[in-house]
Amino acid sequence: MEKNTPSPIQKESIMLTINGTVHRLEVEVWTTLLDLLRERLKLTGTKKGCDQGQCGACTVLLDGQRINSCLTLAVMHDGSEITTIEGLAQNGKLNPVQQAFIDRDAFQCGYCTPGQICSAIGLIQEGKAKTKAEVRELMSGNLCRCGAYTHITEVVLEALERSRT
């Protein structure tokens, strides 16, 4: 078939630092940060659970803050630093939160886990949660259908304890 429509979408050049690596990219403006990570950069550790901001599986750290990467366009983040689940381990050593997820069995299927871990790290940096109830509330933006919440809460409380000492 003869195609008579050129690419329908504008492209823009951006620079992103992802897990410490600088990427210069030409992106279609309709590409979300999540799809850029997963489809273009093959960083599939960041998960797509709903693509609507209703599950938290796509949580990444954008300039240190946890956000839902499905609800932002890649083009909006020229110059930003992004940390995904793939960037948490340092020199092959897991981030303590990652290790604690394993040790406390804070997951089953693992699909929400990268988002939970990024969210937990964001929560710890925010410094707003002190009690168990506050941890539960501030981790509620990450759904887990396997129901690992009890163990997730334990991991976060333990990490908070560690960060205080």
Binding site: R38, E39, K42, L43, T44, G45, T46, K47, K48, T84, I85, E86, L88, A89, L94, Q98, Q99, F101, I102, D103, D105, F107, G110, Y111, T113, P114, I117
Partner: peptide, 21 residues
């Protein structure tokens, strides 16, 4: 015991059906 696939799951290395390219 810890899950033997735990490392892959907490590092984002575990690949699910829609993640093969």
């Amino acid at each position: 015991r810890n899950r033997v696939d735990g490392y892959q799951k907490v590092t984002g290395q575990a690949k699910y059906a829609g993640e093969w390219q």
